[in-house]
């Protein structure tokens, strides 16, 4: 256990206190005079068009899935970048192979038109 993390722990405590303070404070201090207009969900001043529980297109899921894959690729790149000098040319070639294999996936996604939004 490192002492540097004490600051992080203090921040966490502060966040919890602030969040609870906001909730409790607004619960006790606010004046509540609800009207029909006030109770409607806020949609940037535009009248509400319908329910929020609509079915979303699967296209969003595809984007999220692709994001995760390339996100994890980046996760592997972080330690490589940090130890780049120690790993040298060997590490460079290693990472090149890794990225090239994933590049095949990227080209596949591109050619299949999975990045097109229609």
């Amino acid at each position: 256990m490192k002492t540097e993390y004490i600051a992080l722990l203090m921040l966490m405590g502060l966040v919890v206190i602030t969040a609870l303070g906001m909730l409790v404070g607004s619960h006790f201090l606010s004046a509540r005079r609800p009207t029909k207009v006030k109770s409607t969900p806020y949609e940037s001043g535009i009248p509400v068009l319908g329910g929020t529980r609509e079915r979303f297109s699967v296209k969003f899921y595809l984007v999220a899935m692709l994001f995760i894959v390339f996100d994890i690729e980046t996760v592997f790149m972080i330690p490589w970048g940090v130890s780049f000098r120690q790993l040298g040319l060997f590490g460079l070639i290693e990472m090149l192979v890794f990225v090239l294999i994933l590049l095949v996936g990227f080209i596949y996604v591109w050619k299949r038109g999975a990045l097109e939004w229609d």
């Binding site: 699967v58 296209k59 899921y61 595809l62 899935m65 692709l66 995760i68 894959v69 994890i72 690729e73 592997f76 290693e94 192979v97 890794f98 990225v99 294999i101 994933l102 095949v104 996936g105 990227f106 596949y108 996604v109 299949r112 038109g113 999975a114």
Partner: peptide, 21 residues
Amino acid sequence: PFEITSVLLLAAVVGAVVLAK
């Protein structure tokens, strides 16, 4: 194992595209 991870990620990409598109 590190290099094989990229193959695993490749499979995930292809799987996602095949299922969703």
